[in-house]
Write a protein that binds this DNA or RNA. Sequence first.
DNA 1: GGTTCCCCATGACAAACGTCACGGGCCGCC
DNA 2: GGCGGCCCGTGACGTTTGTCATGGGGAACC
Lengths: 204, 204
Amino acid sequence: MSAPIRVVLADDELLIRTALAQMLDLEDDLSVVAEAANGEHAVTAAVKYAADVAVLDLQMPKLDGIAAAEQLTRLLPGCGCVIITSHGRPGHLKRALAAGVRGFLPKTTSAATLAAVVRTVHEGGRHVDSELAAEAIAAGDSPLTPREADVLELAATGAPIDEIAHRAALSPGTVRNYLSNAMTKLGAANRHEACATARRLGWI
Amino acid sequence: MSAPIRVVLADDELLIRTALAQMLDLEDDLSVVAEAANGEHAVTAAVKYAADVAVLDLQMPKLDGIAAAEQLTRLLPGCGCVIITSHGRPGHLKRALAAGVRGFLPKTTSAATLAAVVRTVHEGGRHVDSELAAEAIAAGDSPLTPREADVLELAATGAPIDEIAHRAALSPGTVRNYLSNAMTKLGAANRHEACATARRLGWI
DNA sequence: GGTTCCCCATGACAAACGTCACGGGCCGCC
DNA sequence: GGCGGCCCGTGACGTTTGTCATGGGGAACC
């Protein structure tokens, strides 16, 4: 048998990270060569240890899984990226694939699947969870313009218009127009409902 | 050495559950006798296998970790409950302790700590993460009346007043009064900010 | 060079929202 | 029995928000 696949594992929750590392290490052909608690560290560690595959949690401090994958595919093209996540939002899957990610799994999948996907990705293949893929296709593309998404994201904190306008360096009237457009596109009755749907679909 | 501590593990994410189970099983004096994907199943499994300690994820379908712990302390008083969670909200800790939980840990703790807490709880002791405890004390008790919390929870979806009023079987005016009160108590400029604060503190 | 889309802005109008004052009914407590 | 707290409701008032019409500037594309 050839040398084991060198895996870097990144997850901000120590307990989970340790458990997953142990689990992956139990596979004969996998070897966890480094662990990281955030995206930045994941990238440097993957480069340092010349990893074959990076298993990245989606939500992490500093650099999230997708941003880390993006850097990684540039800095270390031979390294495949697998994203695992608790919340499978359609938009995240799209952005991940655009960033060069070749594996995308919810944390509800089995351990066997994760190991299998790591192997598949290492061989240059792809694998995305079929349910998530279906959702992504059903949800379609984000109808929001970049600016609308920006403003909607600021609105998600619950701040009033003036606050949003100030933080986005826009006139209050413009903010209202953007929000109104976004609400129409998302079929929401108010901006907070719009924020909720946009978040659910991974569009902000 | 005496018989190993019989542990039931509940977490809705299969990958995580499997990994944690394997990890706990690696400890000589711990034995994972059952796994559950939701609170209901956790309770029945704990009873069925006469578990010594239940390790429960906070957010689960059907019955969340706290509700499961509440039932468990009634149905199987000898069984200690440990809650693990990704989001350490002060309010959750309080409710957990009130429900008879004796261990409360964020998922950012180490594997060694989890095992140690399981042992402590089995021996009748308590352990809550010190940082979480500090936050809980700093945050104080919820100033919201039960009804205010109800309404605020309904408001969290972003629904307009009429919708909230209908769902709570209240007059729109009353809803606005409750929300206004809640906003004042939470120092929020609008109800969505109030929802955000209340959620952050685990009060809804 | 026209069309289209995004960006940014203004002004006016109606609806939703937040505040305040006030009332009654119920319960628990001193 | 008074007091306070929570429950629920109404009405009035001013502010915020959502909608719509309108316009100019810039980039992309045919």
